[in-house]
Design a protein around this nucleic acid. Structure first.
Ligand SMILES: [Zn+2]
Ligand SMILES: [Zn+2]
Ligand SMILES: [Zn+2]
Ligand SMILES: [Zn+2]
Lengths: 200, 200
DNA sequence: ACGTGTCATGTTATAATATCACGTTCGGAC
DNA sequence: GTCCGAACGTGATATTATAACATGACACGT
């Protein structure tokens, strides 16, 4: 009854960060996904997810903690970690182990899901949600999630051989993205300038 | 001159952990590898490596810190982390990101290297040393390093497509090892006993 | 309206992991 | 011996994560 009122009310009053329309669309998509799963994307979880979506690079838990602080509210670590746990469990974000930081799941970024929820069901949700592959650029910190399932397939066959029951996997590749690699090596094979000014 | 005396003396006095002959053999192998690379496997590094070799499961930095404490010596974290950094750089151990813990590199456990140092040179040392694949059992905490290069090959081809310059990769699979999986499911499909007593 | 269970959140403290900064010692080249 | 750089000792601190317990908001049956 007045539950809807309260939700609207709270949204208006306590949202410290205004998200762009694009981000809001993604958040709404996430909300729908949660509802499908019988879970609630609360205001707090929504805000954390929004901040992760808007960041161009992986975000640490304590970065998030800083960002959600307002004059009124000084949340403590558990607040953030609880939201992160929820988002992880529902496949909305991934944790990058090598960085102790979080990125949105690419499923959220494209509208594949929105149009075709069946897409959810033709791949192995159990394993897929908890498993992703990332290319992490050491230089610009950008992270690309690889949708490609070939790695997972290879891994699965290895596990079968070893009778290992795979539950999830982290695959993280460190290196330089195309852009940064180009900057590093201005010419193909001319390292005779001034030490290539490598930003290590 | 009295250098040899000192080493013997110190070894006798400050080695709190006596390693088994098998472990000592591996340590000697590691020592040789270091010397090849112009590095020194000091007493301290040797002890840390020995402890990691002897452990049946991955060891955390602070576990090691506890283990190397004696009535005389109360080392501080940097001591351990410095040794770990050294061992990582020289490919003697790996870090398991998901556990913040360390395991010996399997190269050390088998004597392939001892007999055939050329083995080192027919695979890509640059990438291989810094890259390994692990099967981590959630239940017994055992970790298996996969020598198999098929995953790495697959990853490399993906990176090539994306023009991503791979420097290293972590591949960690979580699940149940053959032994533990068998324990979990006593019969194939008879979950009607007392909740199978699944340890979380 | 009242108790009651459940989920989400707030709050305080602390655990666990990792690094910085600075001074000293050790080992080997000369 | 003298010197230099690598290795180590030590104290403080940073960063990441969780434990433990209390409160608030709502649903539901009575
Ligand atoms: Zn994803
Ligand atoms: Zn980059
Ligand atoms: Zn290895
Ligand atoms: Zn096991």
């Amino acid at each position: 009854m007045d539950h809807d009122f309260c939700r609207a009310h709270c949204t208006a009053r306590m949202t410290p960060t205004e998200f762009s329309p694009a981000t809001r669309a993604q958040l709404d998509r996430a909300d729908a996904l949660c509802t499908e799963q019988g879970a609630r994307l609360t205001q707090q979880r929504r805000e954390i997810l929004g901040l992760i979506l808007d960041a161009k690079t992986p975000v640490g838990a304590y970065d998030l903690l800083e960002k959600i602080k307002t004059p009124d509210r000084r949340p403590a670590p558990p607040t953030v970690y609880r939201a992160l746990d929820f988002l992880l469990e529902h496949g909305l974000i991934h944790r990058i182990e090598r960085l102790s930081a979080f990125v949105p799941c690419t499923h959220l970024l494209h509208d594949a899901h929105a149009h075709n929820p069946d897409h959810c069901h033709n791949h192995d949700h159990e394993t897929c949600l908890h498993t992703a592959q990332f290319l992490i650029c050491k230089s610009c910190k950008s992270v690309t999630e690889i949708a490609e399932s070939s790695v997972l397939t290879t891994l699965r066959s290895i596990c079968r051989e070893q009778k290992f029951a795979m539950q999830s996997a982290s695959i993280e590749v460190i290196g330089l993205c195309a852009t940064c690699a180009a900057k590093e090596r201005p010419a193909s094979n001319a390292p005779r300038k001034q030490a290539t000014s490598s930003p290590s």
